[in-house]
Deep mutational scan, measured.
Amino acid sequence: GSPLAQQIKNIHSFIHQAKAAGRMDEVRTLQENLHQLMHEYFQQ
């Protein structure tokens, strides 16, 4: 897949890990990143 698709997959797993660790501030930051990446992805 594209590097962007790979990045989106990575962030999904980072979010999963951050949630499991209870780091909600990190989850929020990652979700904002994910949102931006998704936006770029669909602009392609």
Rank of each mutant, 00 (worst) to 15 (best):
N33W: 15
R23I: 02
D25W: 09
E26L: 15
L37P: 00
I15V: 02
L37A: 02
K9D: 04
Q7F: 08
Q17Y: 07
H12W: 15
K9Y: 08
H12R: 15
H16C: 15
V27P: 00
L30Y: 04
F42M: 11
N10H: 07
Y41T: 03
Y41R: 03
K19T: 07
I11R: 01
I15P: 00
M24R: 04
L37E: 00
Q43M: 11
Q43L: 12
H16G: 06
E26M: 10
G1S: 12
R23E: 03
Q44K: 11
Y41A: 04
Q6K: 07
E32I: 12
I11M: 10
H16Q: 14
Q44R: 11
K19F: 13
G22Y: 03
I15H: 00
Q44L: 12
I15Q: 00
L30S: 01
Q31E: 10
L37S: 01
L30D: 00
R23K: 09
L4K: 02
H16Y: 11
A21I: 04
E40A: 11
H39P: 01
A21F: 04
L34Q: 01
K9P: 00
T29E: 10
A18Q: 02
Q44F: 12
Q43K: 13
I8Q: 00
M38C: 12
E40V: 10
A20Q: 10
G1W: 04
I8A: 01
K19R: 13
L30W: 08
G22A: 03
M38E: 03
L37D: 00
H35S: 09
N10F: 10
A18G: 01
E40S: 07
A18F: 04
N33T: 15
R28G: 03
H35C: 09
A18S: 03
S13V: 12
Q43E: 08
M38H: 03
I8P: 00
H12V: 15
R28S: 04
S13G: 09
L37G: 00
I8M: 04
L4M: 05
G22E: 03
I15Y: 03
R28L: 08
R28H: 06
P3W: 15
P3T: 15
L30R: 01
G22I: 02
Q31L: 14
A21L: 10
R28T: 05
E40H: 07
S2W: 10
E40D: 07
E26C: 13
E32H: 11
N33H: 15
F14E: 10
F14A: 15
Y41D: 01
L34V: 02
M38G: 01
E26T: 06
A21C: 09
E32A: 12
Q6A: 07
G1H: 12
D25G: 05
A5R: 10
L34W: 02
R23C: 08
G1T: 12
K9H: 07
T29Q: 13
K19G: 02
L34R: 01
Q43W: 08
H39V: 12
A18D: 00
Q44S: 10
N10S: 10
H35V: 11
Q17W: 10
H35L: 12
Q31M: 14
K19S: 05
Q6F: 07
H35F: 10
R28M: 07
A5P: 05
Q6L: 10
G22N: 06
M38R: 03
I11F: 06
E32S: 08
L37H: 01
F14L: 15
S2F: 11
S2C: 15
H12E: 08
M24V: 07
A21Y: 03
G1P: 11
F14D: 06
L34T: 00
L30Q: 02
L37T: 01
Q43G: 11
D25Q: 07
D25H: 07
S13N: 10
A21H: 05
M24A: 06
S13W: 14
H16M: 14
Q43A: 11
E32G: 06
H12D: 02
Q43V: 08
H39T: 10
M24G: 04
E32D: 08
H16N: 11
V27W: 04
T29D: 06
N10W: 14
Q6M: 09
I11D: 00
D25M: 06
H39Y: 11
E26A: 05
P3M: 14
S13R: 15
G1Q: 11
Q43F: 08
K9A: 11
A5Y: 13
Q36R: 13
K19A: 09
Q6V: 10
Y41V: 04
Q17I: 12
H16W: 13
L37Q: 01
M24P: 04
V27E: 01
Q6I: 10
Q43I: 09
V27I: 05
H12M: 15
Q36G: 04
E40M: 13
L4S: 02
Q36A: 11
K9I: 09
M24E: 07
H12Y: 15
T29P: 02
F14V: 05
Q6D: 09
L34S: 00
F14R: 15
I11Y: 05
G1Y: 02
Q36F: 08
D25V: 04
N10K: 14
L34G: 00
E32C: 14
I8C: 06
N10R: 14
A21N: 06
L4Y: 04
A21M: 08
H12N: 07
R23A: 05
M24W: 15
N10Y: 09
S2L: 13
I15D: 00
S2P: 09
I15S: 00
Q7R: 11
H12Q: 14
E40R: 12
A5I: 14
M38L: 13
E40T: 08
S13L: 13
M38Y: 12
Q7K: 10
D25Y: 05
H35Y: 12
I15C: 08
Q7V: 08
Q7L: 13
E26Y: 07
E40G: 04
S13C: 15
R28A: 09
G22D: 03
F42V: 06
F42E: 06
Q44W: 13
I11P: 00
H39W: 12
L30H: 03
N33I: 15
M38Q: 04
Q31N: 05
I15W: 02
I8K: 00
T29Y: 08
V27K: 01
R23G: 01
H16E: 13
H39C: 14
L34C: 06
G22V: 02
H35T: 09
L34H: 01
K9T: 05
T29G: 05
Y41M: 06
N10I: 14
F42D: 05
S13F: 14
Q36M: 10
